[in-house]
Design a protein around this nucleic acid. Structure first.
Lengths: 243, 243
DNA sequence: CGGCTGACTGGAATGTCGTTCCAGTCGATT
DNA sequence: AATCGACTGGAACGACATTCCAGTCAGCCG
């Protein structure tokens, strides 16, 4: 009776070249990676998959669901990937998770805006709990009181998503804008910041230099450390002030 | 020669009921506030302003620019608004700025996604420096060494934007979802979190209770304090550990 | 083994959107 | 009064997400 939506397998006829939700999501991720957020259209998708629109809509309710599925697939992969080396301290563990998300967003720049829109829209859907769980578990391991868990975790999650998103977008902007590498792009932004009105933007002008010659990953991790320091400072750490 | 774009006032003919970039942006903000991000369409805009599409396009290059202008207008207003009481300590000053942005995003829920997309896209355009300046100036006032300014400020900015956005979206979701107040919505999310697989999501389940009965603003400020504590903890404060 | 069923497909059609185009209008200038 | 150009309104256009429907094909039932 249900007009649309694949139920999985009811046992009946399946062709060899069968279209599947998986194949669609996979193609969507590829398109998003290569052509950006606006590059994902049903027209291109049908061409890429050599099929019609109706076929895709049988597997996927609408574009939003497709985006959500793509997001979840990438996030799940990033969070499941084993950290390179087993972390020795809780602090290292947080850093590992943060770097995992950072890397995923860097590799798939469309992820950041997508997460920003999706996490609040449906806090029950798998992506949100997955991210909070991955980060929060390490926060808990820091040994701080339970009352600090939620605040600390959400601060970390927001920082990670925001900073990684900014970084990823900078990379994309660099490629599109000047056509050159990230260094030159940061250079131009830094110069523009320095040219701002000294009366109105003294602070921005002051940090323009730091913007110019910073290392992205290092800077990102410094932010994570900052928040970690705040968590352990505010809630006398049972352990783990050392690295 | 420039085919489009209003230059301000060249002194020539102006009708009494003149359309202006300001009136357009104002109407756009109203539409965004009442109908959400998808409610802003040129068709509705032309009706609301009793004009045609061409007229609007003479003042505004495209929808993106309109969105940017609306964003900037609201952010500028939020940042310019004098804090209720003159802050006594740097810490209070940071909180005041944070609350200003928090309030603006709460009042205009479309702001958060918009900022998330716009700040990285064009870090030179007025919105980004304006926010960094407002926050960063207070960070500088904390008395930490200059090397810590950029990291601390970006951590704060990301947290503020992320947390406020989540909060605003929760409010909107509450209104749309259950049709009831935020309390009931958080209740349902909390319940859903508690129903997750205990093996996979132990942390999320543990904080579900905190999610249920927290005060939004209080929780938000706790996060700000957390980051402030991190900043002053990592970089021996010249002052201001007290409130 | 031959028809039936329902999962699954492809393409045509629909409606909405952002954007462009152009024939005007109106105030100020001359 | 003629003219110029800033400014307007509405009719187009192309791209998009989505819906509809006439089919197709594999397995099951007889």
């Amino acid at each position: 009776m249900a007009p649309r939506r694949n139920t999985g397998s009811t046992g009946t006829g399946r062709r060899a070249d069968a279209l599947s939700r998986e194949r669609i999501v996979e193609a969507a991720v590829e398109l998003l990676d290569t052509a950006g957020e606006s590059g994902l259209t049903f027209r291109v998708l049908t061409e890429r998959l050599a099929t019609g629109a109706g076929a895709i809509y049988w597997h996927v309710a609408n574009k939003g669901e497709l985006l959500a599925a793509a997001t979840e697939a990438v996030v799940a992969a990033a969070l499941t990937a084993a950290p390179a080396r087993a972390p020795r301290t809780p602090r290292e563990a947080v850093r590992a998770v943060a770097l995992g998300l950072y890397g995923a967003i860097d590799a798939h720049p469309w992820l950041a805006p997508q997460l920003a829109v999706q996490m609040p829209r449906d806090p029950v859907k798998s992506v949100t709990p997955r991210i909070y769980e991955a980060v929060g578990r390490q926060v808990r391991a820091l040994g701080v009181p339970e009352s600090a868990w939620f605040t600390g975790t959400s601060a970390l999650v927001h920082y990670i998503l925001g900073a990684a998103g900014q970084n990823a977008a900078n990379g994309r902007a660099a490629r599109a804008h000047v056509g050159t590498d990230r260094g030159e792009f940061l250079d131009s932004v830094s110069t523009a910041w320095e040219a701002l009105d000294p009366g109105e933007y003294p602070f921005v002008r002051a940090v323009a230099k730091q913007l110019r010659d910073h290392d992205d990953t290092e800077q990102f991790l410094a932010g994570v450390d900052l928040i970690l320091a705040g968590i352990t400072a505010l809630h006398a750490p049972g352990a783990g002030a050392s690295d």
